[in-house]
């Protein structure tokens, strides 16, 4: 079993010591970072710091050293976002800090995505994402999309203020997709239920797995609305999407 001291990067060690509390998460994170190269640790540390300039530079450096794009994404960028997600979940950091980390991740992904696209990597599943009708907030949705894409999903982003018809149109277009709906306002949350009803009316409910999320949304509300799952944050969203994709076969 790997030890904290096996991780060469002091900043990553500090992050684990200061912010991770659950034993299984500590063990998994130590195992991960003890395995990856010092350069990947450095990319992850820069991402956690929200330093987009450093992530940009280090990603280019890694590619120049012939490190695989997939390795940079998994062992540097996504590994870093894993710690960011835990810090957000535990309220050590808030949305501005997460946005800075996301900006750093985007700086790295700008170099990685074209390489992965050209390689034609098969996605795990297709996820259709949109903020519900009447709601123009998209920070949470965009973070989820970034993490889903990083985790290997193809994501169709319908943007904000998404009508039932727009959701239905894209569900019809794609085979057995996952549908993700987001809402930030308690006043617009009921529109999740209206969209699910519209899918039932269109005879499409059984064709799609539905996940919902957003700051005011809860598991109870998701159940009441008839969703298949609820994701508390972007990390949860990815784990949920993987479960739903498996369930859909």
């Amino acid at each position: 079993m790997a030890q904290l001291s096996d991780i060469t990067n002091a900043a990553i060690r500090r992050e684990i010591e200061d912010f991770l509390e659950r034993p299984e998460e500590i063990a998994r994170t130590v195992e991960l970072f003890a395995r990856v190269s010092p350069l990947m640790q450095e990319i992850a540390a820069a991402l956690i710091e929200g330093d987009n300039g450093a992530v940009d530079r280090l990603t280019v450096q890694a590619l120049d050293q012939s490190v695989e794009a997939l390795e940079i994404m998994d062992d540097g960028l996504i590994a870093g976002m894993g710690i960011v997600g835990i810090k957000f979940r535990e309220s050590f950091i808030f949305v501005p800090e997460v946005l800075a980390c996301a900006r750093a991740m985007k700086a790295g992904m700008a170099h990685i995505e074209p390489i992965l696209s050209a390689a034609g990597v098969e996605p795990i599943a297709t996820v259709i994402m949109g903020t519900v009708k009447g709601d123009l907030h998209d920070i949470g949705k965009n973070l989820c999309i970034m993490m889903l894409r990083g985790a290997g999903f193809e994501v169709i982003d319908l943007g904000v203020d998404t009508s039932d018809d727009a959701f239905i149109e894209d569900v019809e277009k794609h085979c057995s997709p996952i549908l993700g709906m987001s809402a930030l306002l308690t006043t617009t949350m009921p529109n999740m239920g209206k969209t699910i009803e519209a899918l039932i009316d269109a005879d499409l409910r059984d064709e799609v797995q539905i996940m919902v999320g957003g700051a005011p949304v809860t598991q109870e509300f998701a159940d009441d609305m008839g969703a298949d799952g609820y994701g508390k944050d972007a990390l949860d969203c990815v784990a949920l999407a993987k479960r739903l994709a498996e369930a859909a076969g």
Partner: peptide, 14 residues
């Protein structure tokens, strides 16, 4: 976006 009877008016923050 002034919306309709069953939705709140909102600012296009994008």
């Amino acid at each position: 976006q002034w919306e309709q009877k069953d939705n709140w008016p909102t600012v296009r923050m994008s």
